[in-house]
Design a protein around this nucleic acid. Structure first.
Lengths: 257, 257
DNA sequence: GAGTGGTCTAGACCACTCG
DNA sequence: GAGTGGTCTAGACCACTCC
């Protein structure tokens, strides 16, 4: 078991800087791990006391940084032995975040085409069937229908339902170009933080087949999702239909239990 | 915004007990949240200082407990304002853990039937296509094929590949009854901690159709999964085929980004 | 016995929210 | 200005691993 070679250039953290010290430490260590893990063996990190001395911070702060790396699945720790970099250092969870960032993480170029933008007075039936904590029936929604592409190839048809009271003044132009999540944050200050989702297999109907350029009856995955902010506000209801050939949802480094 | 009514019975934490103090605090608070959340309004928790006084522990320990509840999605916090219980207090992430515990969480009774148990010399092609960090080719595996049922109804066909060197002495009887994960822990001391998975839609072939009692060509979801321990040992490769009618994978309270 | 990570304490300063 | 959560410190004891 080799030790992780920590960069020999002495690094300093900014105690007056904008970002917390523990995050700076975590970022520096993450870089070391990413570089070091080209070798396939597991590498031992310096001990918490050594890191505290190295960065001239308290051990509690070092532990905060290591906790963060641990949650991200980049390291694991063994009592009485030490902390170790994981050999597989792939990123966070994908599959239920912003389509834009997910496709980017997968190494492709995401694009979207708005195919419909109308007001509706109820959510699709499947939403009620699969997801709990749905709103009362007397709401109205903007329904934004988009075809999602990765490298110009259509991979999903997606309907997003946005409560009209939550998004006053929403217009098609706001979402015509660029990420919806970017517009949410820029205009109304909303930031998605949690997702509840259900996934089920299905087959393409005529409309889906047309949008995705596949045959009627071809296998697809339907994902139903409710996205909420950190403060527990519901931001959107989404129905996504993914084509089945050559595109897979992936979930990486998901912590069990 | 109502305050969360903390139980009036004075609770004490055991400082010499087996479980850490912060976990005891977290458990007590979780109970309050579960009880209190029958009301639909969001409830404010006592402040960190109040909780520290209440339980006679330091504020750092209280924060450790609150961090845990935050990660589980049970509370959220706002700087300068306070901590609040979430209205939707559903559990952790499901969809990629043990089939047994997942179906139980969904409120159904899980059963399994072993339909095959043989040695094979390679993993299925789909595993290589979808998942990174696969092992060298010169390994051999126990292939355990099971039909998974919820309330006696077959919902999935699952092939589990177990490296013969990782599981010396594995016999069919070890997995014939009860959870594989329970056997892993009991006999070899392995505990699954992380999952990498890919999900794709497909249609049932003849073998799948027979096992699940559905028609050839019916929609199914195929999940490819690699499960690892906290120490980064690969514990199993799994190919699961879920039937599409009436059974959906759900992901609850998944933290985005 | 020396070193490690796990836990806990008491006290401090900050930026933020609210009245 | 009072109270809140966010961050940080210095020091301590423990159970565990390794030699």
């Amino acid at each position: 078991m080799k030790a992780l070679s920590v960069s020999k250039v002495r690094r300093f953290v900014q105690k007056t800087g904008a970002s917390p010290v523990y995050r700076q430490v975590a970022d520096l260590l993450e870089r070391d791990i990413q570089q070091g893990s080209s070798r396939s063996e597991r590498a031992a990190l310096p001990s918490e006391n050594e890191l505290a001395a190295e960065f001239k911070v308290s051990r509690v702060t070092v532990r905060q940084a290591l906790d963060e790396l641990h949650r991200k699945g980049l390291i694991y720790r063994e009592k009485g032995r030490g902390s170790y970099a994981r050999s597989q250092h792939i990123g966070g969870v994908t599959g239920f975040g912003s389509f834009t960032s997910e496709v980017e993480n997968a190494g492709s170029k995401p694009t979207s085409r708005v195919v419909n933008f109308v007001k509706v007075s109820s959510l699709p039936d499947g939403m009620k069937r699969h997801l709990a904590n749905l709103p009362p029936n007397n709401r109205s929604y903007h329904c934004l229908a988009r075809v999602r592409c990765a490298d110009s190839r259509p991979v999903a048809y997606e309907e997003t339902y946005l409560d009209t009271e939550t998004y006053p003044g929403l217009e098609r132009a706001d979402v015509e170009n660029g990420s919806l999540y970017a517009a949410m944050l820029r205009i109304w200050g909303y930031q998605p933080a949690w997702a509840d989702a259900a996934i089920e297999p299905s087959v393409a109907d005529e409309a889906i087949a047309k949008h995705l350029g596949i045959k009627v009856g071809a296998p697809v995955v339907v994902a139903w999702r409710v996205t909420s902010s950190e403060q527990d506000e519901v931001l959107e209801y989404v129905r996504s239909v993914y084509r089945g050939d050559g595109f897979a949802l992936t979930v990486r480094r998901l912590k069990i239990s």
